[in-house]
Simulated assay, not measured.
Amino acid sequence: MSKAKVNQGINLDEYKDVWIIAEQRDGKVLNIALELLGEGRKLADKLNVNLTAVLLGHNMDEAAEELIKYGADNVLKVDHELLKVYTTDGYTKVIVDLVKERKPEIVLIGATTIGRDLGPRMASRIGTGLTADCTRLEIDETDGKLLQTRPAFGGNLMATIVCPKNRPQMSTVRPGVMKKAKYNPDRNGNIENIVPNIKDEDIVAKVLEVIKSEKKEAGLIDASIVVSGGRGLGDAEGFKLIEEFAKKLGGVVGSSRAAVDNGWIDSSHQVGQTGTTVRPKLYIACGISGAIQHQAGMSESDCIIAINKNPDAPIFNIAHYSIVGDLYEIIPAIMDAIDDADSILEEI
C-alpha cells in the first residue's frame, strides 16, 4: 500500500526535512536555537532527512556559520532591515512564505515569548496543528509521525499528540528541556541567502524603540548549579540562607511556585511547569515537596539533592540523594563542611 495520503489536497509525501526557527538577538544565536538543533538533529537522523535552520534578522553572517557548526545541514538566512527586530507581521509572513514554498515535514520553534507569539499565527495561516510547550519529541517507529509530548491537565499527566493529516507537524519546545547540540568547528553545511518578499506596509505593528529591562535575570537556564527554596522555608527571610548557600556553591537561586505565590521571591526565580525549565549538573531542592508541576521543570537535572522534613515528600521519588531533616540545621552544616574542606586544601 502506498505511503502517500491525501487530505484536502495535501500530499503528505511532498513534505520533507526538519526545520528549526533559530532565534537571535543582535546577531547572536540564542541558547534555545542550539537546543532545537540538538533535538532536530535526532529527529532528522531518525527520518534520514536534512536539518535546516531558518534565521531571520539583519547582518547575521556569523550567526549563520554558528548554526552550521552546531549541526544544521542548511541555513536559510533571511537578511533584511525590516527583520532586524522581531515583529509579528514581518516574521510570520516571511516564514509562512518559505514553509509553503519548501514544504518541511516538521517545524520546531522555541516556546519563548517570541515563539509563543509566532507559532500559533504560522500554524493558522498554513492550516496545520501546533502542539505547544513540548517536553519530549520522538518519531513513531511504525509510521514516521512526530510524537509530541507535553504536560496536560495542570501538569498532572503527560499527553502525546500527533498530527496525522496536515503538514508540517509543528511544535513549540520549552527552553531548557532539550540538550544543546554539540559544537563542531570542522562541520560544513550550506548557507542560502533568501531575499524576502516583504515591504514596509506588510508590518502593521512596528517597533519604535527597544528599551532594555533593568530587572536582573535569575540566570536559571544556563546555570550549572541551582539551589531552590520552597514553602518549607517558612517565610521570605529563608531565602537569605538559600542565597548564601547558592553563592557558596557558585550557583543561582531558584524557587517553587508556592514561594513565588507567597511573595517571598520574584517570579523570575520560579522553576517548574509555569516557570523556567532547568537541567543543571546539580539541583538542590530545599523545603520543596515536589509537586508534579515542579518536577516537570527540573527532573532532567544530572544530580538532584532534596532536603525536606517530610520523609514522604514526592521530591524524594526523583532525588538521587535525599536528606530528611530541618533545612535550617542541614544547610549550615553543609556550608561549614565546605569551609572545612577549603581550609584543609589551603593547608595542603
Results as ranks from 00 to 15, higher is better:
residue 97 D to W: 12
residue 97 D to K: 14
residue 97 D to G: 13
residue 98 L to S: 13
residue 99 V to L: 15
residue 99 V to A: 13
residue 101 E to V: 11
residue 101 E to S: 15
residue 103 K to C: 06
residue 105 E to Y: 12
residue 105 E to A: 09
residue 105 E to K: 10
residue 106 I to K: 02
residue 108 L to Y: 02
residue 109 I to K: 03
residue 111 A to D: 01
residue 111 A to M: 02
residue 111 A to S: 10
residue 112 T to K: 04
residue 112 T to W: 02
residue 113 T to F: 10
residue 113 T to A: 09
residue 113 T to C: 01
residue 114 I to A: 06
residue 114 I to L: 12
residue 115 G to N: 06
residue 115 G to Q: 00
residue 115 G to P: 10
residue 115 G to I: 01
residue 116 R to Q: 11
residue 117 D to W: 08
residue 117 D to R: 02
residue 119 G to E: 07
residue 122 M to C: 05
residue 122 M to N: 10
residue 123 A to Y: 00
residue 125 R to F: 06
residue 127 G to N: 08
residue 128 T to Q: 00
residue 129 G to Y: 07
residue 130 L to I: 08
residue 130 L to Y: 09
residue 130 L to K: 02
residue 131 T to N: 05
residue 131 T to V: 13
residue 132 A to I: 07
residue 133 D to H: 05
residue 133 D to A: 08
residue 135 T to A: 05
residue 137 L to G: 06
residue 139 I to D: 13
residue 140 D to T: 07
residue 141 E to N: 14
residue 143 D to T: 10
residue 143 D to F: 04
residue 143 D to N: 15
residue 144 G to E: 10
residue 144 G to S: 07
residue 144 G to F: 07
residue 144 G to I: 00
residue 145 K to L: 12
residue 145 K to Y: 09
residue 145 K to V: 08
residue 146 L to I: 03
residue 147 L to F: 09
residue 148 Q to G: 02
residue 149 T to R: 14
residue 151 P to L: 10
residue 151 P to T: 11
residue 151 P to S: 12
residue 152 A to G: 12
residue 154 G to W: 05
residue 155 G to V: 11
residue 156 N to L: 11
residue 156 N to C: 07
residue 158 M to H: 10
residue 159 A to R: 12
residue 160 T to H: 09
residue 161 I to N: 03
residue 161 I to L: 05
residue 161 I to G: 04
residue 162 V to G: 00
residue 162 V to W: 00
residue 162 V to F: 02
residue 163 C to P: 00
residue 164 P to L: 07
residue 165 K to G: 06
residue 165 K to N: 14
residue 166 N to D: 00
residue 166 N to A: 05
residue 166 N to V: 04
residue 167 R to M: 01
residue 168 P to D: 07
residue 168 P to L: 05
residue 168 P to K: 01
residue 169 Q to E: 14
residue 170 M to F: 01
residue 170 M to V: 06
residue 170 M to G: 05
residue 170 M to P: 00
residue 171 S to N: 13
residue 171 S to I: 00
residue 172 T to R: 05
residue 174 R to M: 01
residue 176 G to A: 01
residue 177 V to I: 12
residue 179 K to V: 01
residue 183 Y to V: 02
residue 184 N to S: 06
residue 185 P to D: 04
residue 186 D to W: 02
residue 187 R to N: 07
residue 187 R to M: 04
residue 188 N to K: 15
residue 190 N to S: 14
residue 191 I to Y: 10
residue 192 E to P: 04
residue 192 E to C: 00
residue 193 N to A: 10
residue 194 I to K: 14
residue 195 V to S: 15
residue 195 V to G: 04
residue 197 N to Y: 11
residue 198 I to P: 10
residue 199 K to A: 09
residue 199 K to E: 15
residue 202 D to Q: 03
residue 203 I to H: 07
residue 204 V to T: 12
residue 204 V to Q: 14
residue 204 V to P: 02
residue 205 A to E: 13
residue 205 A to W: 01
residue 205 A to P: 00
residue 208 L to M: 08
residue 208 L to T: 11
residue 210 V to T: 14
residue 210 V to H: 01
residue 211 I to C: 03
residue 211 I to Q: 14
residue 212 K to S: 11
residue 214 E to D: 15
residue 216 K to T: 15
residue 217 E to K: 15
residue 217 E to C: 08
residue 217 E to N: 14
residue 217 E to Q: 14
